Amino acid sequence: MSGRTEAAVVIVAPMDLVWDMTNDLESWPELFTEYAKVEILGHEGETVRFRLTMHPDENGSVHAWVSERTPDPKSRTVRARRVESHAFDYMNIFWSYEERHGGVEMRWVQEFHVNEAMSYGDEEMAAHLRKNTAIQMAHIKQRIEEAAGRR
């Protein structure tokens, strides 16, 4: 069994601004509410390997993992995956960007399988991801639309 979520948001801003801001990994602590730090570990072609560190959770635990992200500016898509998965046997994320009436639709598809050693499963993780994705997408939308207004 595996889990899958899909979510989208329309950001009222030019495509280049949406693309540039969401693919500037070093600015993710300002773009996402959950990330405290991004550390770029290396590049191989278009693929970037990086470590994401979250803000402490309600128990004071700090979670971090290594991911890889490969943007394709021609197709306006990004493929990402966790390299250090911890809670997941795998976690893959597909980002797509499409021009929509006055804005850009940014879509995330997350496919994953929770490690059986965890106290929760794919369904619980999918529910958590859907809730958190809505929060993150709303914050990203706000930040990018604010930046577009300053242009």
Rank of each mutant, 00 (worst) to 15 (best):
G3P: 00
R4M: 11
T5P: 01
E6Q: 14
A7T: 09
A8R: 15
A8C: 01
A8D: 12
V9C: 02
I11C: 03
A13P: 00
A13R: 01
A13N: 03
P14S: 03
L17F: 13
V18L: 04
W19F: 05
M21V: 11
M21R: 11
T22M: 03
T22N: 04
D24A: 15
E26D: 11
E26N: 11
S27A: 15
W28G: 05
W28N: 08
P29H: 13
E30N: 11
T33W: 07
E34K: 13
E34M: 13
E34R: 12
Y35G: 03
Y35H: 10
K37L: 12
V38Y: 07
E39V: 11
I40D: 09
I40G: 02
G42S: 13
H43S: 13
H43I: 08
V48Y: 06
R51N: 08
T53H: 08
M54D: 08
M54V: 10
P56G: 04
P56A: 02
D57E: 05
E58W: 10
N59Q: 14
G60M: 09
V62F: 10
V62Y: 10
W65L: 01
V66W: 03
S67H: 10
E68V: 12
R69K: 07
R69T: 07
P73T: 11
K74T: 15
S75I: 01
S75K: 15
S75H: 13
T77W: 11
V78K: 10
R81Q: 10
R81G: 05
R82E: 06
S85V: 15
S85C: 15
H86N: 08
A87K: 09
A87W: 06
F88E: 02
F88M: 07
F88I: 07
F88S: 00
D89F: 02
Y90A: 11
W95H: 15
S96T: 05
Y97W: 03
E98D: 13
E98M: 05
E99V: 03
E99Q: 11
H101R: 12
G103N: 01
V104D: 04
V104T: 04
M106K: 07
W108S: 02
Q110M: 15
Q110A: 15
E111Q: 07
E111M: 12
H113M: 11
V114R: 01
E116N: 13
A117M: 07
A117N: 08
A117I: 06
A117G: 12
S119R: 12
D122K: 03
D122S: 01
E123L: 11
M125D: 00
M125R: 00
A127Q: 10
R130V: 08
N132Q: 09
T133W: 09
I135H: 14
I135D: 14
M137A: 04
A138G: 10
A138I: 01
A138D: 11
K141E: 02
Q142P: 05
R143V: 04
I144S: 01
E145P: 02
E145W: 03
